[in-house]
Structures are given as C-alpha cells and as structure tokens.
Design a protein around this nucleic acid. Structure first.
Lengths: 217, 217
DNA sequence: GCTGCTCTATTTGTATACAAAATTTAACGT
DNA sequence: ACGTTAAATTTTGTATACAAATAGAGCAGC
C-alpha cells in the first residue's frame, strides 16, 4: 500500500491541474485532512511537496494557496521550454533508434488523423493534447538526461493548469503538426541541428499563438 | 523568530554543501532531532525540502541519505548550465544598465588581481570561487527571469558539493577569466549573440577542464 | 563456512495534543 | 458611523505517542 502522503499529493495535484480549485484558493490543512478522513501530517507533507514544485504558494504561519500565474509567467515558461526541449532534440537525435523514430511517426499520423476528423472540440482537443504530451515526453526521454526531464517537467505544470491548448486556431494546429513531422524527419536523418531548430521554433510558435504578439516592448 | 524547520533545513544544507557529511551518509530523523534538541517534525520537513532540491535521496520507509553523484551527473549538469546560462546572457544583454556592466567589470578586475597574487591556493581559490559565483549570479539576476534563476540554482548544488574548482589548472584559470572579460565586453556592446556564445563556451570549457575529455563515446 | 529464517530493535509513517501566530469578531470610545 | 483596540476563533508550527515497515542479530540447517 502506498503512503497516504503520496495519495494526498496526487489528489491535490490532479485537482489543481484540472482547474478544480484554481483561483488562488486557500488550502487549509485540517479541512483537507477531515475531507479525506486522515490526519494533518500527510496533508502537510503533500502541500510542502507541491510548494517545492511550484503548484502552491506557502507563506510562514499563513498556510498554502494554489499558485497563481500571469502572462509574464507563461512567457518565461515557453521561453525556457523552447531552449530545453530544443536541447532535448539535439541530445536525442544521435541516440534515436529505428523503433523510437517509428513510434514518433505513429504519433504524428494519429494526430494528423485526429485533426482531420470532424469530432467536436471537446473530445478532439484533449485527445490531441494527450498525444502532444506523449510526443514531447518521448523525445525528452530519448535525450537520456534525467535532469533535463525533471527541469522541463516542473515547467509544464503551469500551461496545463491554464489549459492553453484550447485557444489553438486551425491554422496553428496544422502548423504545429507539420513541425512535429519535420522534427521526426530531421531526427531520422540524424540532423540534430535541424531537429533542435524546428523544436525551438515549434515551442516559440506555441507561445506566440497563446500570448498573441511575440514580444511587446 | 524564524521557523525551526527552516533553521534545520539551512543547517543540513550547508553541512552537505561543505562536504561535512558526504558519502551517502544516512540521515536518521531522530538522531538529527536530538542532536539539535528539537522534535522529529521539523527535521522531517527539512529533509523533504532537501529531497525536492535533489540534495538528499529519500526512499519510502527507508529514510534519507545525502545524495551521491557521479561523472555522468556532472556532465549532464554542465551541459544544462551551458544552455541555461547562455540563455541568461542573451536575456540580460539588452537589459544591462551601465551600472550593472561596471559591477561586472569590477568583479573581473578583482578576479584578475586575485589570480596574479601569489597567495596559497587555500585562500586564493575560495576567494576566486566566491567572486565567480557572484559574477554568474549577477548575470542570471540581470536576465530578469525568476524561473531561469531557480532552474540554474538547483543545478549548481552538485558542483559545489564536489568542489570542482579545486582542479583548475593555471592556464584554464586564465582562460576562464578571459571568458568573463569577453562576456562583459559583449554585453557592453549590446551583442547578445556574442555574449551568449562565449558563456556557452565558458561553461563547456569548465566541464572539459573538470571531466577531462569532452565526450568519450 | 555459508545460506536462509525468525525475532528483536531501529526507524519511518501517521495520528493526536498542545503552543504560537494570525485572522476574525466584537466591543468600545471618539 | 468610523476607526481602534481587545478578546475569541481559526489555523499553522512543533512535540509527543503509537502503528507499520525495515534492517540486523542470532540461530538452525545444510
């Protein structure tokens, strides 16, 4: 049986990621404890862990609230993701096996087919988002750098909370899928400069799509 | 008065960073608690916090040990630092004020003077290392990206623990100081590509100096 | 001598109790 | 009516108590 603290951590985490208690809501230790039928101790541990990941803010003697982000945060995050995921491509390309390339190609195909179907947005977009995450996650895994993976993971929370994928325009979606395909082609050709460049552009394009203008001075 | 948990956290942290209890030593909660005259609760919180930062490893029901790193970890870390600090230079250059440039120049001068004096290594190297950290930290601060700073900070622990600066050769030290000077010149000229390129080379040079050959396949 | 087992002792995980701090509420004076 | 101060309540921080899990010592069997 898993530790209670871990269970609590996961519950609060998914609750935040699903936006179920957003809006800088206060997270009172005892309330959470009684609502789960446990003591404050594991709740406390879970909250501290979430604080370390940046999903909640804690102030001394004043408790925890779910963290709040603004446009500037999103800009920072996509900036860093573009750098780090591009680097992941660079590392992954010379290590990529034929099977891994094929795996990525299959995801590309799935996403392209999904984009063509005329399902309602409510079912199509989450399916696309899920595959998008698998695609990016796979490349990060292929980079074989544990720390790189950890750094990116902490950055990814915020966009998920803000559910950015909802605002993608059809043209942007097409461009995004084309980027994916091009990244795989570059990796297949063993061209890490190509692959990492496209990945950089891909993430920055997502940022511009979500935030509007690239850099309002 | 600050929280006990914070005090404990800082104590264990500096103990690890000074290498006072390295070697994957076990950190038993009760032992630490009685040695500090407090209860297990704040010790536990401090250990979890250190675990989140990667300074200790905790296994369920098996407690915490100070984390252990190998050459592969160092390679990963310097790789990521080269990417992230280079990006910091890119962001910092267009934002740099005259006063900030002068501050960096002064540190360069101090380090150059320190390198020329004939003090014994035991006093000279720590002084150089301290200024080196200020130099890099200032540029990161100038980048004005909170998250970038946080990411780099978590990466820096390990090299400090391993006290890498001890192995620098005189020639490498000279090259390193020259890099610093060149970075400042590039920032002064407003040339962010130049600045970030030199920073990238600077960190990778440090990696090669410490790890020997650049990339043994 | 070595391997595997049981039982004990240590150590972690969780619950509860109490103290300190902060927030809310209420009372009071102007 | 307003602001200020002082209780009262809530909530966090720490200590202690107990349960569950792990590690280690000692011993049986080969």
């Amino acid at each position: 049986m898993a530790k209670i603290a871990t269970t609590v951590y996961e519950q609060i985490r998914t609750a935040i990621l699903n936006g179920e208690l957003s809006n800088s809501e206060r997270l009172v230790e005892e309330d959470l404890a009684v609502s789960m039928g446990i003591s404050r101790t594991p709740v406390r541990e879970a909250l501290r862990r979430l604080a370390a990941e940046g999903l909640v803010d804690v102030s001394p003697n004043r408790g925890a609230r779910v963290a709040e982000w603004d446009v500037h945060d999103l800009r920072e995050i996509f900036d860093l993701r573009s750098i780090l995921e591009s680097h992941a491509c660079e590392l992954a390309t010379p290590r990529a096996s034929a099977a891994e390339i094929e795996f990525l190609e299959n995801i590309c195909t799935e996403m392209e087919e999904l984009a063509e179907t005329d399902l309602s947005s409510e079912t199509r977009l989450p399916a696309l988002a899920a595959r998008n995450r698998i695609f990016h996650g796979k490349i990060i895994e292929m980079s074989n750098s544990t720390r790189l993976g950890l750094l990116i993971e902490t950055l990814i929370h915020v966009p998920i909370v803000m559910q950015t994928y909802k605002v993608y325009s059809p043209e942007a979606l097409q461009r995004s899928l084309h980027h994916h395909r091009e990244i795989v082609n570059a990796m297949k050709a063993g061209d890490e400069v190509w692959a990492s460049s496209v990945m950089r552009a891909h993430v920055l394009a997502a940022r511009e799509e979500i935030l509007g203008q690239p850099d309002p001075a």
